[in-house]
């Protein structure tokens, strides 16, 4: 019963890089005596990024994120981070600084993005309103391919149309234009630097992910909160 699909074309990462896309990686500068300790952290959307940002705040400031309004913890360039974090722009001499990247099983991640962003019982209606038309347009599918949600305005997708749309987008070599939640992970953290050059590449499910994050950012791990629930 196996379905054989025509092979997808080989995506030209070099052409994508020339578009000027900047990976969402973050340079963390922590005072260390008279100097500053510099590290790089990067994690994709749908890879536990919100939880990791909260942990990063606790590591840097010694307390949980105290705010309940905008700007959210995910806005790492907001004033609430006291200028400790900036978007990484320089990738030369990358290996001189410790670095931390989080990956997620690609199939699990895409199905998680489906459940929270585009399906007809979505968790995030504002994102669905924005993302479903984007996916249809990139795939070249008509709005008639989508469904009408019962829980809000706009359009939603069933699993088959969602995967068909993503497949068509990859067929057209347009995956570099996908929203961060669907963008292949190798087009973000690893666009400029392969996984082998990062100090730590881990998953959110790793028991010592937070210890590793502490170790990279502070140069030491307090050994507390090492497990990540």
């Amino acid at each position: 019963d196996k379905v054989i699909l025509p092979p997808l074309p080989h995506f030209k990462v070099s052409v994508f890089k020339s578009t000027g896309f900047k990976p969402k990686a973050w340079t963390v500068k922590v005072p260390n005596g008279n100097q500053k300790r510099e590290s790089v952290v990067c994690y994709c959307a749908k890879c536990g990024s919100t939880s990791l940002d909260s942990e990063l705040y606790r590591i840097l400031f010694g307390k949980p994120w105290p705010y309940s309004d905008w700007p959210w913890v995910q806005n790492l360039d907001s004033k609430r981070w006291k200028g400790l974090i900036t978007q990484t722009t320089k990738w030369k001499n990358f290996e001189q600084s410790p670095s931390f990247a989080v990956v997620r099983d690609p199939k699990e991640r895409l199905l998680s993005a489906f459940r929270s962003k585009v399906r007809c019982q979505s968790n995030n209606l504002a994102d669905r309103k924005r993302l479903v038309p984007q996916l249809l347009k990139l795939a070249g599918l008509s709005k008639e391919s989508a469904s009408k949600p019962l829980d809000g305005p706009g359009l939603c997708l069933n699993e088959t149309i969602y995967l068909q749309a993503l497949f068509m987008i990859h067929e057209k070599e347009l995956q570099g234009r996908l929203d961060a939640h669907f963008l292949p992970q190798h087009l973000n953290c690893f666009l400029n630097v392969p996984p082998s050059k990062w100090s730590i590449v881990t998953t959110i499910g790793s028991a010592k992910a937070i210890c590793d994050l502490e170790l990279v950012v502070l140069g030491k791990s307090k050994g507390e909160s090492c497990s990540f629930a």
């Binding site: 019963d1 196996k2 379905v3 054989i4 699909l5 092979p7 997808l8 995506f11 990956v103 997620r104 099983d105 690609p106 199939k107 895409l110 199905l111 699993e159 088959t160 995967l163 068909q164 993503l166 497949f167 990859h170 995956q175 292949p184 992970q185 190798h186 690893f190 392969p194 996984p195 590449v201 881990t202 998953t203």
Partner: peptide
């Protein structure tokens, strides 16, 4: 559970990611 065509599409669109960092999962 995904249908066979859905599974095949998911396999195809994630193949490159697995080849690049699958060993870290």
């Amino acid at each position: 559970t995904l249908s066979t065509i859905d599974e095949a599409r998911l396999d195809a669109i994630t193949r490159e990611e697995y080849s690049i960092f699958g060993s870290y999962l």
